[in-house]
Nucleic acid binder design. Structure first.
Lengths: 112, 112
DNA sequence: TCTTATCATCGTATATTTGCGATATATAAT
DNA sequence: ATTATATATCGCAAATATACGATGATAAGA
């Protein structure tokens, strides 16, 4: 049991769900905030500010990277992580599209 | 290990993370779509459309309810679940506030 | 070359999520 | 009263997520 049934749904919904999942932890939201306000983008600064171990922060960064919410490279000693504003825009668009779809469908009134 | 550190972050970020988590599964997004287009709001119809067992759908409904994204009551044989548009609006607002904060903070240019 | 600093990854422990069958509950119909 | 229908909840198994120490990898500086 507990087989993954996520692929049984539409690509649109899966994509939006993935983006939501990437932001479904306060640590990752906090990381996004830090990344936005630092032009330096050094990972070490994130670790200093965050109440988490370096390994954990690195893991969260990986997930954000995987979802495309940030982009970054590491050159041995230095790292450079930044917000991927394009994905962010797409996220906003996807959410608004869903809202639009739902409101459109609900035009014939709700029961409660 | 694996102690929950979520409470170490701000209420704002925790709240947004919770809303994101509620939508972090395509089944729940699909359920929201169905609820929006049916004025009847009968749970059984959701189960018919969804590729999931009744128990699983009920569980997803509970999570959506818990996050406040839907509201509903059950009167024995009949159920009435509906979109909670207010929470939806708040979600959109919270997301836009985060985006705004981040863009504001990033005004002094990004490094990559 | 050796050391130090920075970051990723591995291994592991625990917690949470996902999914479903079985069962409980409560109304409606017979 | 009994039966049928609609939902929630329980209990369990498998999968994922969370967190961290230890270790590996890579580049800069001594």
């Amino acid at each position: 049991m507990a087989i993954n049934k996520k692929e049984a749904f539409t690509d649109t919904d899966q994509h939006l769900a993935d983006l939501c999942k990437a932001m479904a932890h306060p640590a990752r939201i906090a990381i996004l905030r830090v990344l936005a306000e630092r032009s330096t983008c050094i990972c070490g600064e994130i670790v200093d500010v965050m109440p988490l171990a370096q390994a954990t922060v690195s893991q969260h960064l990986k997930e954000l990277l995987n979802a495309g919410l940030i982009k970054g490279t590491v050159d041995g000693k230095k790292s450079c992580y930044c917000i991927n504003w394009e994905t962010f825009k797409n996220f906003n668009l996807a959410f608004n599209t869903l809202s639009g779809d739902m409101e459109q469908a609900a035009l014939n009134q709700n029961c409660c």
